[in-house]
Nucleic acid binder design. Sequence first.
RNA 1: UCCUCGAUAGCUCAAUCGGCAGAGCAUCCGGCUGUUAACCGGACGGUUGUUGGUUCAAGUCCAACUCGGGGAGCCA
Length: 447
Amino acid sequence: MATVVTIENLKDYVDQEVTLQGWLYNKTGKGKLQFLQVRDGTGICQVVVFRGNVSEEDFDAGKQLTQESCLRVTGRVKAEERAPGIPGGFELDATSLAIVQIAEAYPISPKDHGVEFLMENRHLWLRSSRQWAVMRVRATVVSAIRDWLDEHGFLNVDTPIITPSAAEGTSTLFEIDYHGEPAYLAQTGQLYNEANIFAFGKVYCFGPTFRAEKSKTRRHLQEFWMVEPEIAFCNLEQLMEVEEQFVSYIIQRCLTDRAAELQVLERDLSQLQNIAPPFPRIHYDVAVDMINKAAAAGELVPGYDDPVPAIEWGDDFGSPHETYVAAQFNKPVFVHHYPTQVKAFYMEPDPDRPEVCRSVDLLAPEGYGEIIGGSERMSDPQKLLESIHRHELPEEAYDWYMDLRKYGSVVHSGFGLGVERTVAWVCGLGHVRETIAFPRMLGIMRP
RNA sequence: UCCUCGAUAGCUCAAUCGGCAGAGCAUCCGGCUGUUAACCGGACGGUUGUUGGUUCAAGUCCAACUCGGGGAGCCA
């Protein structure tokens, strides 16, 4: 056995003899010639087995290989333009081949399959090249998130997943039994983040969050990953500058580090290459006007057959409204100053117009919807207490949160970015379920 | 929770007006020296989601249920 190498590194071993170990992805052949598509987790490489170049036993072994059988194969690396693969252009001219295991009939053939079948076989589907590419992009999105924040003075301080009921209502939370006391899986780490900034200045938490909403759409999961940066001495305008730098970095990192994967996904890169600051910023008032003009003109929601529904000032955007507004731009767009009444209790009202608040959502282009929600937080203790009362929240549950406003309160802001929606956008996918290895969706938690 | 669409071989689908349930792929056997979802020949493969109803006759029509897809609301 020669040096064991990985497929992504094959380009460094041209004309050398190496060993690959992996699984048979597909094969074809012609009598005395076999073409094996072998994947090893880092890519897919074509292995050529010619009858004269290997022993009779090894040639027969090649013929026995079924899809997903695993093998070790040794041979000479050749630069060959005709060779398919990820990356293509290199193939292994086999000199010996050993079967590790012959796989039973594999359920996922290289033909079309339905979503239900593929989801039931998610543990196997991950081996398919598109799913493989998506997970590699996801890893880069996660890595880019951490790198950018770490390099810009943010401290990673993670927040609890098991929480008391303190958030706004429990209907959308998963309840668990915490040694006899009801507790809930966190749907945000934000309140704890706010405590952490007063200790560390700029922080982020990054982990899974849980929503028990009965949402069954291409944009929703019951369990998803969210990164939530929070910044002391930061107002709404400064927050938007952070967000556009952050998101642009993530996109550009994927373009440079995952070109092969995006090619497997047949992603239109021109839609991503222009993602750079500044992003357009529109006020809620302006967005409402845009929507109502489109509604009056009978315009259709891009990608759907339904007309743009009118909106009354003061209402939160519905999904079709978001889709319409986002489609007017070829970059992510900030919509800021939403009505105070539709937003969370902790968002800072505009001092001149308290009916709107210093909140901002970032809507991704191409119909990917809201990828960020954020705001400037209320920093005045008296106003915060009034807001807690107005929202009829239990004051005693927020005693520690109120403390943050008593001991050195400063203007501060933060946001949450949904990893799955971001990955779906980068990869150009029609559904967030493909952006996480084992998605948890309404009514579905297996495998 | 509501609206909407769907369920036939391991997979993707077909089956005319209600009249013998069929193809491709996968798997197995055989053939082929440059294949790109190869190709050619053969074999194997069925409780038509479940229950009930209409009918001489139901994959097909009716009802309920189960499971799944898409959407609304809500959100990242």
